[in-house]
Design a protein around this nucleic acid. Structure first.
Length: 894
RNA sequence: GGGCAUAUAGCUCAGUUGGUUAGAGCGUUCGGUUCACAUCCGAAAGGUCAGAGGUUCAAAUCCUCUUAUGCCCACCA
């Protein structure tokens, strides 16, 4: 039998790549190749990172948690699929490439649609490659053979299918509406793609016909078609309904005075110029009051023809010119500085320009006929998208963790407006709508034709809609489009099978920041396309923050680079620090010391294994529970059982942090600090050492797969740890035996700790051996049976066990400790510090007296004794007796 | 303006449906070249559980209010 020689320190860098290759080559990332008969399936759709570049700490969190769930369920014998992919991230990616082009003094307009898209494809191919490598670096056990991209042929087909079906059902329509327009991206933005920036703004006051008006956007007043006041405002009530001609110097406008509750009489002058084409609120007023909508700002951010003399000016120039003209005409009154929320594009920070245009929308409040009501548990024949999305969470079909986000989810949905899905950018899924105008044969009039379909239209003259779809439209289909939906005639049997096997997916794990963007939209789209849910559980993780609590961001240059962390500490350490000490849905801090701490733990695990591996002869796998020889054996096996059942329970309940901490406690404190030390004394424990270690490694594997797999490779096993069976908690012995053995061992532990404590307090050098006497009325046999262990672990040269007779407490060389069930006396002749010892005992007496008082007070309380369960009261009584005994002995020994 | 979260040892966080003298890791102090590990070992100190009220025999835990911080939603022309 050859001895395995392991290095003293675990070197993550040396082994990680090789291990990942082994996993990959094993084929077990693909559920089709997993051994055994796996009936139950477990699937996670990996939230696809944007195809814009590198992974950040958020992705790393996602990968660590999902791989944990995947590996756990794979080991539990489920048919486990983790499907990876990337999102084309339309606006984000296009913006990124445009920035790159700008460096070459190029623009997408100069290149033209075709060439530009080729450039984007090139960029995306590179990005995806980087993302793939980084994902592997994290140890992610995802099925690369099923990797998908939102612009893949199959997914594009799914997007078209969804669009066409929704169009046919009347859920997608074209409307002329006010939308958020980003002049830089040259595209619309959804409401939730608009962010707000607090800033100082100027509020300008000027004469507006009979009135005075205050506004931060004077240039838009050229497009005013009404003047709004609060209907309750006594100052202006009488004017409601009047029509006015207003002169702004160089331009004139005609407005109608309307009343609207939305007007705050306290703000400015209490009179608002209504600009329906360039303000959401004004647009709503215009709809109510049937006002004209005049667009004065164009999509290019310049004033339109409707702006008369200002046409062609940029918004900023026009504002300046307009204000000057007001001043010349004597209409200008004053300006004030106010706090203002500027709306900006979430991608490029450019101020958003609300304006009206023709766009495609998804109707969220329009009922449609359901093909299949059963899976959703919906009673009526028809439903709206909004109703279904609310229903599936309310009815518990989808569970959100942590629960509090359900409230946020409902609130968001209840206030959801029709979803604008068209974007005026080039990169993305082109809208499958074509138009052509044909001259009517006889009448020679023009006839407009429209074609909406999955396949390109036949015939001449068709022109496809220039716009592309909101990127979330395709990501909304992610859980099922990646599994082969729609199962067309062309689809292989395997693909159709995937959808059946893995959908609805088991868990959607993602950051709470995209609950609305993505999670809600997946629920909506799946409810429509499949009449089903996309996943059973939504697990939301928090955001990673710096040690100072700041958000990590590229612009602040405070973000930890996962790759650098991996270089320095290893992947396992990074993974552990994203899982332990973290609460679901709560932000958490990530910093060097924390990661270093888990690097230390990984190394500890390595050294525990190193010890066992060097200690035992035959590195075989231990299948059944090994034979028990000593009390310590009994104890460690019971602790292992308990740990395994707790860890499994925690993992099943998505309490990942707790699971890890439980395991860490057992591994380091119980197994390493106690049992391994005892193993050095009691010897001949090969089977138990291997058994416990192998179980520990199995349980750690989902948390830190690399180091555990590496250690596993030294056992005589033909299987990878990755596909080993998760520990079953079989407790053969009776519970009572188990309890008493555990308690017995803990009693021995408390004796050892008490002696160590006495030594420490009296500054006895660790190497110095001392004599001890332990007095115990009824545990003499137990203590004597563990003499060897106590002597070695407490560094004693002699241990006497007595039932009654104690050494003379008056001897100044004897120090003592009282624990439940025993008194301990140490002979410290020649090394005792008498004063320090007296102080220590006096302190302990004071503490004990205090404690007795609190228990006595409790027991003196009649209502406590009468109302509390008997077990609780008895426990208190027991405690009191114990403490009183302790106090007496302490006083005796002083 | 509406909502949510957080507030526990110097720091980072646990604390499950109310019942231990409130825990862990880091840091601190003291002591250690014990033949797996100094990325380690042994021991200790350190908390009125943000504040005030309430429910209860019993509250870090449940309720109300207050304070501080953070986030989300809406948005002011």
């Amino acid at each position: 039998m050859k001895k395995v020689d392991l290095p003293k320190t675990y070197d993550a860098k040396k082994v990680e790549d090789g291990i990942y290759r082994q996993w990959e080559e094993s084929g077990f990332f693909n559920p089709d190749n997993l051994p055994g008969d796996r009936k139950e399936s477990f699937a996670i759709s990996m939230p696809p990172p944007n195809a814009t570049g590198i992974l950040h700490t958020g992705h790393v969190t996602m990968l660590a948690i999902e791989d944990l769930m995947i590996r756990y369920n794979r080991m539990k014998g489920k048919k486990t699929l983790w499907l990876p992919g990337t999102d084309h991230a339309a606006i984000a990616t296009q913006t990124k490439v445009e920035k790159l082009l700008a460096k070459e003094k190029l623009s997408r307009q100069k290149l033209g649609r075709e060439k530009f898209l080729r450039r984007v494809d090139q960029f995306v191919a590179d990005s995806r490659d980087i993302i793939r490598k980084q994902t592997k670096r994290m140890g992610s056990s995802c099925d690369w053979s099923r990797e998908r991209f939102t612009l893949d042929e199959g997914l594009t087909r799914a997007v078209k299918e969804a669009f066409v079906r929704m169009y046919d059902d009347g859920l997608i329509y074209r409307g002329h509406r006010i939308v958020n327009w980003c002049p830089r991206c040259q595209s619309t933005l959804a409401d939730d793609e608009v962010k707000y920036k607090n800033q100082k703004a100027k509020l300008y006051y000027f004469k507006y016909g009979l009135f005075e008006v205050a506004t931060t956007r004077p240039e838009t007043k050229i497009g005013d078609t009404a003047l709004a006041v609060n209907p309750k405002d006594k100052r202006y009530k009488k004017y409601i309904g009047q029509k006015l001609d207003v002169d702004f110097g160089k331009v004139k406008v005609q407005v109608k005075v309307i009343g609207d509750e939305a007007v705050d009489p306290e703000f400015g002058t209490g009179v608002v110029g209504v600009t329906p084409a360039h303000s959401q609120v004004d647009y709503q007023m215009a709809e109510k009051n049937k006002l004209l909508v005049i667009q004065v700002i164009g999509q290019d951010g310049k004033m339109t023809e409707n702006a008369g003399p200002y046409a062609g000016m940029s918004v900023e120039k026009c504002r300046e010119a307009f204000l000057n003209d007001l001043k010349s005409a004597g209409l200008f009154i004053k300006e004030e500085e106010i706090d203002n929320n500027l709306s900006v594009c979430y991608r490029c920070d450019t101020p958003v320009e609300p304006l009206t245009s023709d766009q495609w929308f998804v109707a969220v409040d329009k009922p449609f006929k359901l093909k299949d009501k059963s899976k959703l548990g919906w009673k009526k024949d028809t439903a709206t998208l909004k109703e279904l999305a609310i229903h599936v969470v309310k009815s518990g079909k989808i569970k959100i963790i942590p629960e509090r986000f359900e409230k946020v989810y409902f609130h968001w949905l209840e206030n959801l407006h029709d979803w604008c899905i068209s974007r005026q950018i080039w990169y993305g899924h082109r809208i499958p709508v074509w138009q052509r105008s044909q001259k009517h044969k006889n009448t020679k009039t023009q006839k407009q034709e429209i074609y909406v379909g999955v396949n390109n239209p036949d015939g001449e003259g068709w022109i496809q809609d220039e716009d592309t779809l909101d990127t979330w439209f395709s990501s909304g289909l992610w859980t099922f489009s990646t599994l082969g939906w729609p199962a067309s005639a062309k689809a292989s049997a395997g693909e159709a099978n995937d959808l059946k096997l893995y959908h609805p997916t088991s868990v959607m794990e993602t950051g709470y920041d995209i609950l609305f963007f993505w999670v809600a939209r997946m629920i909506i789209m799946t409810a429509y396309c499949l009449n089903n849910i996309p996943f059973k559980v939504v697990y939301l993780h928090g955001m990673v923050r710096t040690d100072e609590g700041a958000k990590m961001s590229k612009s602040l240059d405070n973000a930890l680079d996962p790759l650098k962390v991996i270089e320095k500490y290893g992947t396992d350490a990074l993974r552990l620090s994203m899982i332990l000490g973290v609460t679901p849905g709560n932000d958490f801090k990530l910093y060097d010391e924390k990661i270093a701490g888990y690097r230390n733990f990984v190394n500890k695990l390595w050294n525990i294994s190193r010890f066992v591996i060097q200690e035992v002869g035959d590195l075989k796998l231990i299948k059944g529970k090994p034979a028990v020889k000593t009390l310590a054996d009994e104890w460690i096996l019971n602790r292992l059982d308990k740990t395994a059942s707790e860890v499994s329970k925690n993992l099943d309940e998505f309490q990942f942090s707790l699971a890890g901490e439980t395991l860490e406690q057992f591994t380091w404190n119980d197994f390493a600090d106690w049992y391994l030390e005892i193993a050095k004394i009691e010897k001949n424990k090969d089977e138990i050492l291997l058994y416990v270690l192998q179980n520990i490694l199995k349980m750690w594997h989902p948390f830190c797969p690399f180091v555990t797999e590496e250690i596993w490779s030294h056992f005589n096993s033909d299987k990878l740890l990755m596909i080993e069976e998760w520990p079953k908690t079989v407790i053969a012995r009776s519970k009572a035996t188990k309890q008493s053995h555990v308690a017995d061992f803990e009693f021995i532990q408390s004796i050892i700790t008490a002696i160590r404590n006495l030594r420490g307090e009296n500054k006895v050098e660790p190497a110095k051996l001392v004599k001890a006497t332990v007095v115990s009325k009824n545990k003499k046999d137990l203590i004597e049976s563990q003499t060897e262990i106590i002597k070695k672990l407490a560094r004693l040269e002699e241990l006497n066990v007595e039932t009654g007779h104690a050494p003379s407490p008056q001897d100044a060389n004897i120090i003592s400790a009282i624990i439940t069930g025993a008194e301990i006396y140490l002979d410290l002749s020649g090394i005792i510090d008498v004063e320090a010892e007296k102080k220590r005992v006096a302190k302990e007496i004071a503490e004990t007296e205090n404690y007795i008082k609190t228990i006595e007070a409790k027991l003196a309380n009649k209502e406590f004794v009468e109302n509390a369960p008997k077990a609780i009261v008895d426990k208190e009584k027991e405690k009191l007796a114990g403490q009183k005994e302790k106090l007496e002995k302490l006083k005796n020994n002083l």
